[in-house]
C-alpha cells in the first residue's frame, strides 16, 4: 500500500517535471514565416536621405539625414488568439529590431508564426521599460547603435535628424531624439494595424507571407500637436516635447500591402 502511494506520487512528480522541461523547448507547431518590410516615406514618396527636400505642413523645409526607430513586442492577432513573434516575454535580443533607413538590411525581418488567418498586427514603437532598466544589452539594443542615453539611462525610441533653414540651432540642425519610459515621460506606443477585411493575413505552413508597412515622416509635425521647426528644432531628453512628438508619430504606420 505504502509502496503504491510512493509510486504514484513519484510518477506524477516525474511526469510534471518532464512535461515542464519539455514545455520550455516548445516552438510554434506548423509554423509559417511572416516577413515584415518597412518602407519609410514622406507624404507617400520613398524617403531619400540627405538629398530629399521636404516641406512640413507649416511650410518649413527640411532634409533628413538619419531616421531610426525601435520595433519590439510584435504579435499577430486573430480574434482572441495571439501568436507571438518571439518567445514571450520578449527577452532575447532578436526580439528587438532597430529600423534604420541607412541600413537596407534593417528594413525587413522575419519570424515564425503559427499557421492560420490573422486580422491584425500589434507591436511596440520603442523598447519596453524592462529593457531600459536591465543593464547592458546586445543585438539591436547594443549601445553601439547610438540609441542609448548614457547620462540618463534609457533608449532613444525614435530618431529623426536633418537640417532645416527654419531651425534656429547651430548649423540649422534638426534633431529629434525621442525617448522616455517612465511615468508621465513615457513615450512608448503600442500600435495596432488592422489588415484589410477583404485581405486577411494568411500564414501557411512552410511558406512566407509578407507584410509591407509604410512609415510616413509627414505625421511627425501635427495631429494632435503642432511641431514647428522654428520653435522646436531639437528634442534630446524625455519630457513634454518628446511626448508631444511621440503622440504625433505613433500614427505614422499603415499597412501598405499584404503578399500572401
Amino acid at each position: 500500500m505504502n509502496g503504491k502511494i510512493i509510486h504514484t506520487v513519484c510518477l506524477l512528480l516525474s511526469l510534471c517535471l518532464l512535461s515542464f522541461s519539455n514545455n520550455q523547448k516548445q516552438k510554434p507547431t506548423n509554423p509559417g514565416t511572416v516577413k515584415i518590410t518597412f518602407k519609410n516615406t514622406v507624404k507617400g514618396n520613398p524617403l531619400e536621405l540627405n538629398t530629399g527636400n521636404y516641406i512640413n505642413p507649416f511650410g518649413e523645409t527640411y532634409t533628413v539625414s538619419k531616421f531610426k526607430y525601435y520595433i519590439s513586442n510584435i504579435f499577430l492577432v486573430k480574434g482572441k488568439v495571439v501568436s507571438f513573434s518571439c518567445e514571450y516575454p520578449f527577452e532575447k535580443p532578436e526580439c528587438y529590431h532597430l529600423v534604420d533607413e541607412s541600413k537596407p538590411e534593417s528594413l525587413q525581418f522575419s519570424f515564425p508564426v503559427i499557421a492560420g488567418n490573422y486580422d491584425s498586427i500589434r507591436f511596440m514603437l520603442g523598447v519596453d521599460s524592462l529593457h531600459n532598466v536591465s543593464g547592458a544589452q546586445t543585438g539591436a539594443l547594443d549601445p553601439l547603435n547610438d540609441m542609448f542615453w548614457t547620462w540618463n539611462s534609457g533608449y532613444v525610441m525614435a530618431k529623426l535628424e536633418g537640417k532645416s533653414p527654419q531651425s534656429k540651432i547651430i548649423n540649422n540642425k534638426l534633431e529629434f531624439h525621442i525617448g522616455g519610459f517612465m511615468g508621465e515621460h513615457n513615450v512608448l506606443k503600442n500600435i495596432t494595424l488592422n489588415f484589410p477585411q477583404d485581405k486577411l493575413l494568411e500564414v501557411k505552413e512552410g511558406k512566407t507571407t509578407e507584410i509591407i508597412i509604410e512609415a510616413d515622416i509627414d505625421t511627425w509635425w501635427q495631429q494632435p500637436n503642432e511641431i514647428k521647426i522654428a520653435e522646436h528644432a531639437v528634442c534630446s531628453m524625455p519630457g513634454a516635447l518628446a511626448k508631444k512628438i511621440a503622440d504625433n508619430y505613433c500614427k505614422m504606420f499603415r499597412i501598405k500591402e499584404i503578399i500572401n
Binding site: N2, G3, I6, H7, C10, L11, L13, S14, L17, L18, F20, S21, Q24, K25
Partner: peptide
C-alpha cells in the same frame, strides 16, 4: 520492491531536472 520503485523514480526526477538545467 518499494526501494527499487523509489530509486527508479529518483532517477527519473533527477534526469528530468538535469534536462531542465541543461536547457
Amino acid at each position: 520492491k518499494t526501494k527499487i520503485i523509489i530509486s527508479l523514480c529518483l532517477i527519473t526526477i533527477l534526469s528530468a531536472l538535469f534536462i531542465g538545467a541543461a536547457d
